[in-house]
């Protein structure tokens, strides 16, 4: 089993570190052919405008639209996975999550924050620390999308549609591995 991390920009190393601590091998995905080598994929945090440019230029757009294995996007990763971005469009939306997002919705870096996040996965509830860096906001949750994480006041900060997860915050920065474990669990096991 191998997990790919989109690896040309952003905090891909922090994601890789979490998978390493779980004993899972990772490779950096930078070219379309790398996608064939992995069983799940993470789109890390970074700058969504940069992601958009490189994904288009290096022919990753169609493969990422068609990719049907488990996906996890954090922050900038969520933005490019969304179906719609209001205001400042990054230049690409992959339409993998039926949500509308707004970039830098809490303001600039001085408004970046840490806050407790409630996580709802498989009927269980957990609390972790969310690190929000110039974070986007999920302003509309469409059909077929489940809310899996909220702030204390109920604001949606994590969603799931089928095997695709999107988070506005960075569990990889607080070292919480709950979503990384869940991503691995979504990889179908091959019967012997």
């Amino acid at each position: 089993m191998k997990v790919g991390i989109l690896g040309f920009q952003g905090d891909y190393e922090e994601h890789a570190r979490i998978f390493r601590s779980l004993g899972v091998d990772t490779i950096l995905v930078k070219m379309p052919e790398h996608l064939e080598l992995v069983d799940a994929l993470v789109l890390p945090g970074g700058e969504s405008t940069h992601f958009a440019r490189i994904i288009k230029r290096y022919n990753l757009e169609e493969p990422l639209r068609a990719w049907n294995k488990p996906l996890l996007g954090t922050c900038a990763g969520l933005i490019v996975l969304a179906s719609e971005v209001v205001d400042h469009h990054p230049g690409l939306t992959l339409g993998r999550l039926n949500v509308k997002v707004k970039r830098n919705a809490y303001g600039r870096q001085k408004d970046s924050f840490e806050a407790p996040v409630k996580v709802y996965l498989e009927g269980k509830e957990a609390e972790i620390t969310g690190v929000f860096i110039r974070a986007p906001r999920i302003v509309e949750v469409g059909d077929g999308v489940d809310v899996i994480a909220t702030l204390k006041d109920g604001e949606v900060v994590g969603v799931k549609q089928g095997n695709v997860i999107g988070l506005t915050f960075h569990p990889e920065l607080s070292g919480d591995d709950i979503f990384h474990r869940y991503l691995i669990d979504m990889i179908p096991t091959v019967s012997p």
Binding site: D11, E47, A76, K110
Partner: peptide
């Protein structure tokens, strides 16, 4: 809600990695 923590500050630096 905590602003300006060490994690939030270093966090932005992490997001810029691999970039120009």
């Amino acid at each position: 809600m905590l602003r300006g923590t060490w994690r939030v500050k270093v966090g932005l630096a992490q997001m810029l990695k691999g970039g120009v």
